[in-house]
């Protein structure tokens, strides 16, 4: 059985240095966006999806588990944050916490159920669970069905930052994204992350070495789901609504596509993939359903010719870890 990434370099000081430089460049680039005249709403949206894709990548790229239901964490956190902000009138920081907590609880439950099966079954189970939640949200009164929760107040973060100002909101979203990204980066390079990679490469061997692989996979699932929920909570402030599209299976598919395009199991790949796919949707919005066809074609092309993704190919070419 071939593995996902054939060239996993050990975490050498050089690899760490490369990654830190790349991270600093990324942070600098993103921090300068408001001065460049790029439409900040587009970048904020892409950042939310980038965080979601990074969280998803933690599970597939390092745990080898393909979740086809990550939209359920995005959507659940979004709905709960939106409800807390609008109906309970909580301040933004608590609204985000409510969303994260909801995603955490959901990932505990869904993780407990889905981790019981391996490989292809795991993907089908996560997809079915997210479809179950989709139908629940479709009928639950607090989500307002097809309309979604609209007109969510943005409020003042910590009572200081006025989130209705685009530039302030941008930096808050950026700070959230970078915090989530660093946490994932830390997880990947921790002893826990190393065990996870070992399980991905050869699970029977990891078991024979005495690791309780199910517990590691469960923890990875919960971390990934909770971080995906963080992305969903941030997205509420950007989009100012929470709707059924965020829980739909096509959203789960898009996250998979972003990560695949950027590079499964690469640190920066999901970020690049998210920007590529969001930009593509933005520019091709006028083509109607052809966007779906194009997305499908990208899937096919990536799987057949380009399995390492953009960042994966670059990293492979320069023999660096990115």
């Amino acid at each position: 059985m071939t593995t996902l990434t054939d060239d996993t370099l050990p975490a050498t000081p050089r690899a760490m240095r490369d990654e830190m430089i790349a991270f600093a460049l990324m942070a600098l680039l993103l921090a300068s966006v408001p001065f460049t005249g790029v439409y900040p709403f587009f970048v904020m949206q892409a950042l939310c999806f980038a965080l979601l894709a990074c969280a998803f990548n933690l599970l597939i790229g390092y745990g080898g588990l393909l979740s086809f239901g990550h939209a359920m964490f995005l959507g659940t956190a979004g709905y709960c944050s939106a409800h807390a902000l609008k109906v309970w009138a909580l301040p933004p920081e608590l609204g985000i916490l409510v969303g994260i907590a909801a995603a955490f609880v959901l990932s505990l439950i869904t993780g407990y159920i889905s981790i019981r099966r391996q490989g292809i079954y795991f993907s089908m189970i996560t997809l079915a669970l997210s479809q179950l939640l989709y139908f629940i949200y479709l009928q639950a009164p607090f989500t307002h069905g097809e309309d979604g929760i609209q007109g969510i107040p943005q409020g003042h973060m910590f009572g200081l930052f006025d989130l209705s100002k685009p530039t302030v909101l941008y930096y808050v979203v950026l700070a959230g994204f970078l915090a989530g990204f660093l946490l994932i980066f830390r997880i990947i390079n921790s002893p826990f992350g190393e065990v996870l990679k070992a399980i991905r490469e050869n699970e029977p061997r990891a078991i024979s070495l005495g690791y309780r692989t199910d517990q590691y996979k469960f923890l990875a699932f919960v971390l990934s789901g909770t971080l995906a929920g963080f992305a969903g909570a941030l997205k509420v402030f950007v989009a100012q609504n929470a709707s059924l599209t965020d829980v739909h299976w096509s959203m789960s598919g898009e996250v998979v596509l972003m990560t695949l395009v950027g590079g499964l199991g690469t640190i920066f790949g999901p970020v690049v993939g998210a920007f590529v796919i969001i930009a593509m949707q933005q520019y091709l919005a006028g083509f109607g359903q052809w966007v779906t066809v194009i997305q499908g074609s990208i899937f096919v092309i990536c799987v057949l010719t380009f399995r390492r993704g953009v960042i994966g190919e670059i990293a492979h070419y320069f023999r660096r870890s990115l």
Binding site: L66, G253, V256, V293, S297, F299, V300, V303, L304
Partner: peptide
Amino acid sequence: LLLTFGIALI
């Protein structure tokens, strides 16, 4: 799974 998902979308 990913390839056939892409075919389904197309």
